[in-house]
C-alpha cells in the first residue's frame, strides 16, 4: 500500500498518511467549495488501510480552520476510525490546537465527547 502525501494549499489540508507506521497526519486549513473531492481519496485510502493492513492507527490532526462541509467530511472520517476501534483495533487521535484557536479546540471537544474514540486535546 502506497504512502499518501498531499501538499497543503491556501484552502486545503496537508496530508501525510504512512501505512508502514500507521501514522496519519492532517494539518492546515480546509475550505474548498467542493470538500468532497478533496476528502474522498483520503477516505478511500483509510478504508483500504483498514481492510488490507489493519495495524494500530495514530491520527495527528493540526487544524487551523475547517469550514462546515470539511467538518462534516472530517466527522465521517473519524466515524470510520470509530468503527475500526469498535472492532477491537487500536486508534489514537491527537487533536492539536493553537491557544488562540478556541473554535478548533471546541470542535475537538465536540468530537471527543461525541465519539467512541480516544481523542487527546493537545495545545501547542
Amino acid at each position: 500500500m502506497e504512502k499518501m502525501v498531499i501538499e497543503a494549499t491556501d484552502n486545503t489540508l496537508g496530508i501525510c498518511f504512512d501505512p508502514g507506521e500507521g501514522v496519519l497526519e492532517m494539518k492546515g486549513v480546509s475550505y474548498p467549495e467542493n470538500a468532497a473531492r478533496f476528502f474522498q481519496p483520503l477516505h478511500s485510502w483509510l478504508e483500504t488501510y483498514i481492510s488490507e493492513i489493519g495495524n494500530p492507527v495514530t491520527l495527528n490532526l493540526k487544524f487551523n480552520y475547517l469550514n462546515s462541509t470539511s467538518t462534516k467530511h472530517m466527522f465521517d472520517f473519524l466515524e470510520t476510525l470509530e468503527s475500526f476501534h469498535e472492532a477491537g483495533r487500536k486508534v489514537k487521535v491527537n487533536w492539536y490546537y493553537e491557544e488562540s484557536e478556541y473554535s478548533v479546540l471546541e470542535m475537538g471537544e465536540d468530537f471527543a465527547e461525541d465519539m467512541n474514540l480516544q481523542i487527546e486535546l493537545v495545545s501547542y
Binding site: 468532497a36 462546515s68 462541509t69 462534516k72 466527522f75 466515524e79 465536540d110
Partner: peptide, 30 residues
C-alpha cells in the same frame, strides 16, 4: 446550538451534500 450542530453533522452525513444547516448553525455559534 452545540447539541444541534453535532446532531446535524450525524444526520447529514450520508446526504452527499450538507444542506446548509451545519453552516448556519456554525455561523450562529461563531
Amino acid at each position: 446550538l452545540r447539541v444541534f450542530y453535532n446532531r446535524q453533522l450525524k444526520s447529514e452525513r450520508k446526504a452527499g451534500k450538507v444542506g446548509g444547516n451545519v453552516g448556519l448553525i456554525g455561523i450562529a455559534r461563531e
